[in-house]
Simulated scan of single mutants.
Amino acid sequence: MAEVKLTAEIRNDFGKGAARRARRADLVPAVIYGHGDKPQHVAIHNHSLMMALKTPNVLIRLDVDGTDALVIPKAVQREAIRGFLVHVDFLAVRKGEKVTVEIPILTEGDLAPGANILEHLLNTLPVEAEATHIPESVTVSVAGLDAGDTVLAKDIKLPAGSTLAIEDDVVALQVVAAQAEAPAEESAEGEGDAASEA
């Protein structure tokens, strides 16, 4: 996976007032956790961080006042209506270290003919992977699947070096038959009959 380089500055003031001041300066408050170290409070330029977070589980090399820190996002807090970044928690990682992350499940192919619906019971798949080689996503073929068919976690082919971090038999996807609606004419006739009986 690609590595993104960003610059962060250390934060020494905390609380809601400090966070608001940071955002007015176009900075996003963030905290770096991991390896038993004391959490490090930093602030990162909003636009640069927003662009980096468009890639799921992006690997970021943060320059924190001249010191390198290799991190991945663990919790991203956004404003509910406008969606701008409010706060980010990062996990410090090292090359060769295994981490558990959730990667998006993508689908390809067409279901079997008929009024069937594909339901995503899982939108992301928990996997364990090497911190510097986290897959961006997994793709599942649903070609030809019919109502009643399911895709279990163990059925999803994982990229090399990744292993499942959930039970094998968890249902990730399932195909269900669309509920047929009564024709409009029949509904109208039924209402007419009910009116006559009344």
Rank of each mutant, 00 (worst) to 15 (best):
K154A: 14
D155T: 07
P159D: 12
D110Q: 14
L59D: 07
E79P: 05
S187K: 12
R24N: 11
H120A: 09
A52Y: 10
P159F: 13
E130K: 01
N46S: 09
G66M: 02
K74I: 08
G192R: 12
A69T: 06
A112K: 10
V101K: 02
D110H: 14
L152H: 13
D149L: 01
A182L: 15
A30P: 07
A188T: 06
T100I: 13
L122E: 00
L27I: 06
P56D: 01
T150D: 05
R20K: 12
K157M: 08
E102N: 15
I72G: 02
D146K: 14
I60E: 04
V31C: 09
V171L: 04
D149H: 11
G161T: 13
E128L: 00
D168K: 12
D26W: 00
G36Q: 03
R21K: 15
D63K: 05
I81L: 15
A19V: 06
A69F: 07
T132S: 14
V171M: 04
I105K: 06
T67A: 14
F84A: 01
S137T: 00
A30K: 04
A153S: 10
H87D: 11
R24L: 12
M50T: 14
D168G: 03
A75H: 15
I44M: 02
V170R: 15
V99Q: 02
H45L: 08
V127M: 02
H41Q: 14
V76R: 01
V151Q: 07
I117E: 14
F90D: 04
A188M: 02
A172Q: 09
L6T: 03
E102Q: 13
D26S: 12
R78K: 15
T163A: 15
V71T: 07
P73Q: 01
A129W: 06
V142F: 10
L121W: 08
A2L: 10
G109K: 06
G66V: 04
I117V: 15
A160H: 10
E167G: 09
S141P: 06
T139N: 02
E185F: 12
H87V: 01
Y33C: 12
E79T: 00
I103R: 03
T139M: 04
A153P: 03
P159S: 11
G190Y: 09
V28T: 13
A195G: 00
L158E: 09
H87G: 01
T132M: 03
G96A: 12
A177S: 13
L85Y: 05
V138M: 04
N57E: 05
T124A: 15
I105H: 09
S196I: 13
T67Y: 08
I72A: 03
R78N: 11
D110A: 13
A22P: 02
E130R: 03
A92I: 00
R20P: 00
H35N: 08
L164C: 05
